[in-house]
């Protein structure tokens, strides 16, 4: 059919091999690296690459119309909105202006730790 691009079985095979190699690499990285932070970013980074390979080739977005790009992209923009504005709350919990009255030292806010974290369930979320 004219409007549809047909991806060859050969290209699919290449992508598949790449995906399997990346899977081995993730596991290798997980076992090899020391820093926890680095291992997390590494594993997630590879997941993003793998996902891109699947989306671009297996789901042939690379050869699809602009509209397909827009809809595929919109999903992630909205996901970003959900994460960004939710974390805008969580990352600023307990740093509210009312704390400024407590004990400002040289412009740095010293925070009090709740006395008994067991006591008030919601205060649990306010500690870092």
């Amino acid at each position: 059919m004219s409007s549809q691009h047909v991806i060859s079985a050969k290209l699919y095979t290449v992508i598949y091999i790449l995906l399997m190699v990346l899977l081995v690499v993730t596991v290798g990285g997980d076992l090899m690296f020391e820093s926890a932070m680095f291992r997390t970013s590494f594993a997630l980074g590879i997941a993003v690459i793998k996902a891109l390979l699947v989306v671009l080739f297996f789901m042939h977005v690379r050869y699809s119309s602009r509209l397909t790009w827009v809809f595929a992209g919109a999903a992630f923009v909205w996901l970003f909105i959900l994460f960004a504005l939710t974390f805008n709350d969580y990352f600023t919990r307990g740093t509210a202006p009312e704390r400024l009255f407590e004990a400002p030292v040289g412009g740095i806010v010293v925070r009090q730790t709740p006395v008994n974290p067991e006591h008030e369930p919601s205060s649990v979320m306010q500690r870092h």
Partner: peptide, 29 residues
């Protein structure tokens, strides 16, 4: 059909996304 499927997949991204947002909040804590 293609457009409909992609719109549906966008829905699916946000379906899993809601749970993942919760996961991310707790993991950061």
């Amino acid at each position: 059909a293609t457009l409909g499927m992609w719109a549906f997949l966008a829905t699916e991204v946000l379906f899993f996304g809601g749970a993942l947002a919760g996961y991310a909040v707790y993991r950061s804590r």
